[in-house]
Each structure stands twice: as C-alpha cells, then as structure tokens.
Simulated assay, not measured.
Amino acid sequence: MEIKMFSQLKRKLQLLVSRAVVNIVNDSFKQQNVQVSLLSGETADDVERFQNYGHTSVPPTGSEAIMLSVGGKRQHLVAVVVDNKTARLKDLKIADSAVYHAEGHYLLLTEEQLVKMLCKNLHVIADELILFETPQTQFTGNVRIMGGYSVTTGTSTASDHISGNVSFLNHVHYCQKCGTTTSKPMVG
C-alpha cells in the first residue's frame, strides 16, 4: 500500500511540470487558450495561457511551452511560458529588453537609455496630441505634412522654420510680372 501511494505521488510530481508544443491559439477569450501536444501522442485542448500584465502576444504554431499541472492533475493544465526559438531576438546585452515579432520588426530598450525600433511602417494613433520634448529632431528622409501647421514657441512668438536653407519667416518671392518681391509671410 505504501509503495503504491509513493508511486502515485512520484507520478504526480513527474507530471507537475512539462514541456509542450503549441498547435493552435484561440485569442478570443478573456484568457487566451491554446491546444498543445505533450508527451508522445498526448494532446490537450482549451489550456489557459497566462501572460504577464501589460503584454500580450499570439505565439506562432510550433512555439514551445512550459506547462503546469495545477494540483498535480493532468486534466487541469496551464501554460505559464511560451517561447519561439526561431523568432526571438538574439545576442542582446545584459539588461536589454525587447518586444519583437516573427517577421523581424522590434522595439529594443538598451543601455544608455537608447530605444531602437525597427519596422517598415510606424502608425501612431493619438486622440489628442503627440509631444516631442527634445532640443533637436532629425529626419533623414522626406517629410510630408498633411494639413496645416503652425510655428510657435511656448510664448506664442514664432520661431523660424528652415527648409533647404530657406527661412519660413524671412523668405520672399520675386514676381517677374510685377517686377517686385512679395512681403515676408505673416505669422499669427
């Protein structure tokens, strides 16, 4: 009797933590569910996947998971960690942190307070305002402004905008037909 009891306890402990491969992800519930393959031929459906607060993801098929059997019961599995070896950013330095996608774009927090972002398109949706508080902004490509713009400082005094060595506030145009120059732009 005692040996049988220890055998059952040993089996529960062995199955408490296991590895799995993700087959299907259902992200439509409050708690994401996954279908996983465990030991040879064992499949578990509707397994809750726990994620860290403030971050969520849908892992690609074939990702690996660490599973816990709650209370040692194989019928109550939860996925606590899911990773994908082929998509993970590699060769980061100590203390670096990143959010990444299987297609290769990422947001990387690195030393010296440097934030690097790699992507094809960046789409920001802000209901009220985007504010850049920096002494300098630099663009290496073309800039297109859709809609109006204003050039002001915090005291409502216009500061100049230079484009291709041409001053916004001080530029004038020569009118060949009139033989005179236009006045400077009116700001206000």
Rank of each mutant, 00 (worst) to 15 (best):
Y100G: 02
S97K: 15
K93V: 05
E42L: 09
G188M: 03
M1V: 12
H76P: 00
M186F: 08
V22E: 02
N33S: 06
G188L: 02
R11H: 13
G179F: 08
I145S: 05
V99C: 04
T182C: 06
Q136Y: 03
N26Y: 08
H161F: 11
K30P: 03
T86R: 09
Y149M: 11
M146E: 14
K4E: 15
N33R: 15
Q75I: 09
S57K: 14
D127T: 11
L92S: 04
T86F: 05
R19E: 13
D45T: 14
V81R: 13
T182K: 06
Q14D: 13
T155E: 10
G62Q: 01
T61I: 08
T181P: 05
Q14T: 11
A126K: 04
K184M: 09
D127A: 15
V99M: 11
T61P: 03
H161Y: 11
I3D: 01
N84A: 05
D91I: 06
A44R: 11
L39R: 12
V166T: 14
Q8K: 15
Q31V: 15
V36T: 00
Q8N: 12
N165R: 08
V36A: 01
G141K: 04
I24A: 02
T110N: 07
Q138V: 14
I66A: 09
K90D: 04
H55R: 06
M117L: 14
G154V: 06
I94H: 10
V166K: 12
M67G: 07
S40Y: 03
S97P: 00
V21P: 00
V172M: 09
E133K: 14
A102K: 07
D27Q: 13
D83N: 12
R19N: 15
T152F: 10
D45M: 13
I3N: 03
G41L: 01
L129D: 11
Q136E: 07
G147M: 03
T134C: 06
A20S: 02
N33L: 15
K4S: 14
T56I: 08
T86Q: 12
S167I: 10
P60T: 03
D46G: 11
N52Y: 07
K90W: 00
C119A: 15
K120T: 14
S150V: 06
K12S: 14
M146C: 08
K90L: 12
V115S: 10
T152W: 07
S28G: 11
P59I: 08
G72R: 05
D27C: 05
S163V: 08
G72I: 01
R19Q: 12
A65L: 06
L169P: 00
D91M: 10
I66P: 00
K10Q: 12
Q136N: 10
L122P: 00
L16W: 02
L15K: 14
G164D: 10
Q136D: 02
S18F: 01
L9E: 10
A79V: 09
G41K: 06
I94Y: 03
V172S: 04
L77E: 01
R11G: 00
H105K: 05
K73R: 13
K93T: 10
C178T: 09
I145C: 02
K12E: 09
K10P: 00
D127E: 13
E103I: 09
K184P: 01
K177I: 14
A20G: 03
S18W: 02
G41V: 07
E111Y: 02
V151M: 11
F168A: 05
G62M: 02
G154R: 10
T137K: 09
R19H: 10
